[in-house]
Amino acid sequence: MWIYEKKLQFPIDVKCKDLKFAKTLITQYGGPAGELSACLQYLNQRFTMPTGKTRALLTDIGTEEIGHMEMIGTMVYQIMENASMCELKEAGLDGYYTLHDHGLFYSDPNGYNWTADYITGMGDPVTDLTANISAEQKAKQTYEYLMDLACGDESLLAPLRFLRAREIVHYQRFGEALETVKEYYNQKKYFC
């Protein structure tokens, strides 16, 4: 069960109307290393995690990722809100407009829609946690590229910095979880 909280995890008030940036930013909504991929990957893997620590961690990080998806959705929405036809065309968003108008969609900057093929769920805790460490690193790198493209706009950079920092914390926590899982299996060798 989940309960919605009517607030963002980090304040967002986008001041610019950089539609080309919105087109790239949407990768963190529905692209391969985006927040949808992250939350679905973790919330799906937790069923077969072997310890309380790992079941809790995947639940909690997976839940936080839903909040990050809301942040990215808010940024894209605020940039695209009120954009005219000419502005959308100029930014290369005419194809996007044809399919989604000014609405949000789980897509990447090149028009590929989200697919479960992006995510990992091998059922083995060591494999899955290792995939999660990799996923956090990929997302961190994506945020760095997006920050390069944000043209110094602080209303875009502040939430992107926050999200990048969260990837680092999640990476750290998954690393710790992986170590505890390895310890758990080593112990089992002696006591089973």
Binding site: E5, K7, L8, Q9, F10, P11, K53, A56, L57, D60, I61, E64, V169, H170, R173, E176, A177, T180
Partner: peptide
Amino acid sequence: LQQLSFSLVDLNLFLDT
């Protein structure tokens, strides 16, 4: 509220491990 709840989320993850 965002600052306080963020501190709790971050501590929540730290306490998980």
